[in-house]
């Protein structure tokens, strides 16, 4: 079913201030280009464990510890590869029926 609210996305990293902020910016760009209404936040992996977003994005060394945190968990190596993230988001959000 289509999501009837804003998509809640979490970008994670170790400290939660720098690298995840970079990823947040890339994710916002990627979600924009897909026309998805989303709110993207960034945080550290410890704080992430207490949250319940729709989508988690981070490097494999972090997402492997957060596999049960969200319905969609996306692993990104190159935070500047916006097109790669767009493709992953397109595929995974489509599976959930979250893409218009």
């Amino acid at each position: 079913m289509a999501l009837d609210r804003r998509l809640d996305v979490l970008a994670v990293c170790g400290v939660g201030m720098g690298t995840s902020l970079m990823l947040k910016m890339t994710a916002e760009d990627a979600l924009n280009s897909l026309g998805v209404d989303a709110r993207v936040e960034n945080t550290d992996i410890g704080s992430a464990r207490g949250m319940s977003p729709d989508v988690v994005i981070g490097q494999g060394m972090h997402t492997s510890e957060l596999e049960d945190l969200a319905p969609v968990v996306i692993t990104v190596s190159d935070f500047l590869d916006k097109e790669g993230l767009v493709e992953q988001l397109r595929e995974r959000l489509s599976e959930k029926g979250w893409l218009a």
């Binding site: 990293c13 170790g14 400290v15 201030m17 720098g18 690298t19 970079m22 990823l23 992996i45 981070g58 490097q59 060394m61 972090h62 190159d78 935070f79 500047l80 590869d81």
Partner: peptide
Amino acid sequence: ESSGPYIVMAKGLALVHARP
């Protein structure tokens, strides 16, 4: 050392930082 080499955020590029 504690969180791993995740600060290498893109090919050949690291973002070095610590807490304020």
